[in-house]
Amino acid sequence: MMQAIYDRLKDRFQLGALDVRSRKGLAFVDLRREFLRPVLTELRDVEGFTHLILLTAVDWIEDERFQLTYLLNNRQKNLDLGLRLRLDRNLAIGETIHDLWPTAATYQRELREMFGIAFPGSPRVDEEFILEGWTDMPPYRRDFDTLAYSQQTHADREGRETSDPREFMKQILYPKD
């Protein structure tokens, strides 16, 4: 079923290969940016993917890319289709789809705050979402080291000290080595 949908869309929108490694009824496909809106519209209005389950991002810091995943659901046929879109990490500007699904505005607000991906035109996108008074880099970016930040902000309780068995044993058993 998924394959049929894919075949109908693939050539018109130059989709990447259909990735069906996950469970049955769930597939992912890569697509290019200029086709995002037409594909989403087509899927929603023609193919019955009426529900945007989530919109989330992955930080592929090694490739200098953000990957946006639009996960859609077709309730009638019990199908889930994920559209994957890659953005330049240094110029992270996505395209808002709040007019297709109003709920996307919330996801986009979250992505703006947690990943620093801009969505020009999305309602209230620049307002604070979860964080309050956040001035550092967006915390879901992978170059944000949460442990280091935590230790620089919220000091550990004192009196914690640990020894590595191999070093400790070496020093005691072979003090001169």
């Binding site: 914690r160 640990t162 020894s163 590595d164 068995p165 400790f168 044993m169 005691i172």
Partner: peptide, 20 residues
């Protein structure tokens, strides 16, 4: 944390876990 409790011998680091 692993904290020194006794002198190590073969197969025993002499450290023991301290739990926070």
């Amino acid at each position: 944390d692993m904290v020194p409790v006794k002198d190590p011998k073969e197969g025993d680091s002499g450290l023991r876990p301290q739990i926070d």
